[in-house]
Every structure is written in C-alpha cells, then in structure tokens.
Simulated assay, not measured.
Amino acid sequence: MSVRILFLGPLQDLAGKQAAEVAGPLDWNGLLAVVGNEVAEQLRQERVNVACKGRVLAEKTALLAEDGDEVALLPPVSGG
C-alpha cells in the first residue's frame, strides 16, 4: 500500500507530474522530503493548503497520511 500525492495547479508544473505514490505512513516532514525542493518551498507558504482524505487540514504540519490515503496539494485560488 502507499499514499497518493496529487499536485494541483501550478504545483503540478513545479513537480513535473500530476501525482506520485509514496510509502505510508506520511507525515509533514516526509511530505516535504518527497515532493522536491521547489514544491516543498511552496508548501511552506501559508497560502498553500494540504488536504488529506478529502479534507483540508487546518494545520498542514499535523499531516499524518496512512496507507491508502490521498494527499492533495492545493495552490492558492484566485478569482472573482
């Protein structure tokens, strides 16, 4: 089993892929380690959110994804 990471919007461009499969469990530090430096730099910014199991985390550094979970990396949303 593994954790699926989804890169959305501009984060997909930085990662160079739509998704990645990594061994679980996965915590915040593990996430930063596997997504690459450019994506990790973006994730550290307050305006970028992380969702796990379909729910946006109030505190993304509290991430704990288990085998079979999906983690979505959500760039800031603009619009009007």
Rank of each mutant, 00 (worst) to 15 (best):
E70S: 09
N37S: 13
A72Q: 04
G68R: 12
Q12K: 13
A65L: 06
N49F: 10
G79Y: 03
A23C: 05
F7H: 11
T61R: 08
A23I: 04
G30H: 05
A62L: 12
V48A: 00
A40I: 13
R55E: 14
Q42C: 08
L6E: 08
N49T: 14
R4I: 15
K17M: 13
R55I: 15
L57C: 14
Q45M: 02
M1Q: 08
R4F: 05
Q45L: 05
D27K: 14
G36D: 04
L43Q: 05
R44P: 00
V22G: 01
G24Y: 10
V50R: 10
A33L: 01
L8T: 13
E38G: 00
L32I: 09
L6M: 10
A51G: 03
D13S: 11
D67F: 07
E66Y: 07
A20F: 03
K53I: 07
R44H: 03
D67V: 10
A40Y: 06
G36N: 07
E21G: 06
A19K: 10
L31T: 01
G80P: 09
C52N: 15
L6Q: 10
P10F: 14
A65D: 06
G30D: 14
R55D: 15
V71E: 14
K17R: 15
P10S: 13
G68H: 14
R55F: 12
S2C: 09
A19C: 08
C52E: 12
N29I: 05
V48L: 00
C52R: 08
N29R: 11
R4H: 07
A23N: 09
F7W: 08
V34L: 11
D27S: 02
G80R: 11
P75G: 05
V22E: 00
L74C: 07
S78M: 10
W28R: 06
L32Q: 09
L26T: 00
E41K: 09
V71I: 03
G54C: 01
L6P: 02
L57T: 06
A72Y: 05
G9E: 00
V35L: 01
V3W: 04
D69T: 05
E21N: 07
V56S: 06
E41H: 15
Q45G: 06
V39W: 00
G68N: 12
G68D: 13
Q42E: 11
L57E: 10
L14E: 12
A62H: 12
L64K: 15
K60T: 00
K17P: 04
A72G: 08
A33N: 04
